[in-house]
Computed example of a mutant assay.
Amino acid sequence: MDTEADALRDDIAGFGDNRLPFDGELYLVRQFYRPPESDRLLAILTAELDWREEDIFIFGRWVKVPRLMCWYGDADAHYSYSGVDHAPLPWTAELQAIRDKVERQCRYRFNSVLANLYRDGRDSMGCHADNEKELGPNPVIASLSFGDERLFRLHHKKRKKASLDIVLGHGDLLLMAGTMQHHWLHALPKTKQLKKPRINLTFRRILPS
């Protein structure tokens, strides 16, 4: 891990222990944004971001992504996954302000953000690891949630009995670091519960190709 990632680990230690029992680092900061500000940002992001319905190529065929998405970042922060290349949209004023606050907290620089809008409980994120080559060997990812709470589920790739469920709420910040993406898969499963919209912002650093 680079020196910036080491600084992130040291800084986050003040918010609590590593949530993972082994093979990686995962930290949770409850209400990184307090409810009134979270309400304001949820409304702005819902209305102003360029939400799109996308298709991805998995298991040999194209399928619709079960959520709305958009990709923002520095001009050179191109990101490819599941057969789709994402050219970044320029930062909005609100996204830039959020990035600045997250970077101050983490003492780590991010050059892009993947935004997901989960419209209801039927929208989801399949089981995966953020291990694309553009992210580097041990990526640091800051995941910020606004809106209705949803279950974030992790399980170890090899130790089948090793799993972890975390409910992410309005304004919560989750940080993934170390070797987590090598050893753990994560998902946001569908639910039959009545759910209001949720926005998730995952700040990343895309490395030059």
Results as ranks from 00 to 15, higher is better:
55 D>L: 06
44 I>A: 10
90 P>L: 07
15 F>G: 02
145 S>E: 08
36 P>N: 05
55 D>F: 04
201 L>P: 08
119 R>T: 07
53 E>T: 10
74 D>E: 15
94 E>F: 05
8 L>P: 03
140 V>H: 01
32 F>D: 14
37 E>C: 09
44 I>K: 01
55 D>A: 08
103 E>D: 14
74 D>A: 11
78 H>P: 09
173 L>Q: 08
89 L>D: 14
44 I>S: 10
73 G>I: 03
76 D>E: 15
61 R>P: 15
15 F>N: 05
13 A>Y: 11
2 D>I: 13
139 P>L: 04
47 A>Y: 02
149 E>C: 07
76 D>L: 09
79 Y>K: 02
53 E>I: 11
5 A>R: 01
71 W>T: 05
159 R>C: 12
114 L>K: 00
146 F>H: 04
77 A>N: 02
53 E>G: 12
151 L>K: 04
6 D>W: 02
120 D>K: 00
100 D>V: 08
152 F>A: 11
116 N>I: 03
121 G>I: 03
126 G>R: 00
21 P>G: 09
205 R>E: 01
67 R>T: 10
86 H>W: 09
111 N>W: 03
7 A>D: 15
125 M>Q: 09
135 L>M: 12
46 T>G: 14
185 L>G: 03
130 D>E: 14
176 M>K: 01
52 R>F: 04
13 A>L: 12
83 G>V: 08
200 N>C: 10
158 K>R: 05
123 D>R: 00
58 I>G: 02
117 L>Q: 06
9 R>Y: 07
24 G>S: 08
206 I>V: 15
144 L>I: 09
44 I>T: 09
96 Q>T: 11
83 G>M: 09
139 P>A: 05
37 E>Y: 02
148 D>V: 03
99 R>E: 15
7 A>L: 14
181 Q>P: 14
194 L>I: 08
77 A>E: 02
39 D>Y: 05
70 C>F: 01
88 P>I: 10
139 P>M: 04
133 K>C: 06
50 D>I: 01
23 D>T: 03
79 Y>Q: 09
95 L>C: 13
53 E>A: 12
56 I>C: 02
3 T>D: 15
41 L>K: 00
95 L>W: 13
3 T>Q: 14
28 L>Q: 10
86 H>P: 03
144 L>C: 09
19 R>I: 12
56 I>K: 01
7 A>Y: 12
112 S>K: 00
69 M>S: 06
159 R>M: 13
29 V>F: 07
139 P>D: 04
73 G>Y: 01
162 A>D: 15
39 D>M: 10
127 C>Y: 01
3 T>R: 04
179 T>P: 06
53 E>C: 10
126 G>T: 05
112 S>N: 07
64 K>L: 13
20 L>F: 09
78 H>G: 13
119 R>N: 08
84 V>R: 00
107 R>F: 12
113 V>I: 04
138 N>S: 13
202 T>D: 15
161 K>Q: 10
48 E>C: 07
192 K>C: 07
193 Q>A: 14
14 G>P: 10
182 H>Q: 13
1 M>Q: 11
61 R>T: 14
205 R>C: 08
155 H>K: 02
82 S>M: 04
43 A>V: 06
142 A>P: 15
4 E>N: 13
164 L>P: 12
142 A>H: 02
5 A>S: 15
90 P>I: 06
